[in-house]
Design a protein around this nucleic acid. Structure first.
Lengths: 212, 212
DNA sequence: GTCTATATAGGGATAGAC
DNA sequence: GTCTATCCCTATATAGAC
């Protein structure tokens, strides 16, 4: 999935930066480390990017572009809405598993981790809306009953991101001594099950309101 | 809910630090800012805490202690398991809403944001296990069918944390021009509904496996 | 396009007066 | 217990040779 073959220095810097920003955060990332990993001197980075902030933004753009492409591809494909939803969950998990650091960057950013003068785009929100619109389409809306389509999408996405990035740290024993493939499989099955139960569950408003 | 009344300097430093570490991350936090917010000089912080790392750990301990207390209180109360689960979800949301920065710190930490030599405790995992054990109790296990109790708890927790901390940044328009109370209400209803549908949904293994 | 060397700033931490 | 002043290190960024 990840692009292979010989990459130019710029590309290798971008990849090293993605790893660093994801694992260390924006402030925690040292350009020195990025240069080290690429195998060049720190000063060389400034030949490709004018500043740390510029590098950060370039990493972000790269990721956002790919994500948008993939989601649109699914949305524009042939098929029933319900199948598209299932496919979207799958590609979402694919993205998170293939680019864990990228996911971490996005999570960090949503916690406020970004360069001082950084302006977040509404690209991710527009994508969320597209998916939410699909969920709200006639057929699905019936089975969803009173669940807010947008909250449904946002919540599942958050759950997926949390499982793969935070999960291993919060609950190492559960993820434990297993290979990445079977961990992914377990999580994927679980999230799928949650989604399906949400999708064709009847309203439990009676129970829910009894709780309040 | 938040302790009121006159607080000593130490306490005010801890609170300011919690805010800073949550919003800026460990590396992004400047001791200068914390001192500023408290209204003392930077050097004064070192009278109470020997280092930035020490301060960070103190903030963490404070939060972990309170959380453990609250969860244990619910677990040891009288009542049906199902009602305890509902109560736990409620207190979890309470915690996140009351101490958003504390939640952010925990999320950040699970992404790898911590002092260089920091050793995470397994306190949160032990708590998760206690709750998962409750979910796995005879009565509940039946209705849960093939859902992994631990994944169930972990996933819901992640969803709640994500909704309140990342949600407003990722999807500002959805949280939009509403007061905090109604936003909380919407999210709480949604997560409750998801939980209920998971709890009494039948297995959809047939459907799920068709997806794979 | 990559290097060495250096400028500049900012932040954590300490010393010591009050 | 709080302050002022300062040390020391590290990190971003620049200059200029090759």
């Amino acid at each position: 999935m990840r692009p292979q073959g010989p990459r130019n220095t710029r590309q290798r810097i971008l990849e090293a930066a993605e790893t660093a920003f994801g694992n260390e955060g924006y402030s925690g990332t040292r350009l020195h480390h990025i240069a080290e990993r690429v195998g060049v001197q720190k000063a060389s980075l400034f030949h490709y990017f004018t500043s740390k902030e510029h590098l950060y933004c370039a990493v972000l753009d790269e990721g956002a572009g790919q994500a948008e492409e993939i989601v649109k591809h699914v949305l524009e494909s042939e098929g029933e809405p319900i199948d598209k939803i299932r496919a979207l969950l799958r590609v979402c998990i694919d993205m998170v598993v293939t680019y864990p650091e990228r996911t971490k960057i996005q999570l960090r950013q949503s916690l406020g981790d970004a360069p001082p003068g950084f302006q977040p785009t509404d690209a991710s929100e527009r994508m969320l809306c597209l998916v939410a619109d699909l969920v709200a389409s006639d057929e699905l809306a019936k089975s969803l009953s009173p669940i807010d389509p947008f909250a449904f999408v946002l919540g599942l996405m958050g759950m997926v991101a949390f499982f793969f990035t935070s999960g291993p740290v919060v609950a190492p024993s559960w993820f434990g001594q297993q290979d990445a493939a079977s961990v992914r499989d377990r999580i994927e099955r679980h999230v799928n099950e949650v989604m399906e139960r949400c999708l064709d569950g009847q309203s439990h408003a009676a129970k829910s309101s009894a709780v309040l």
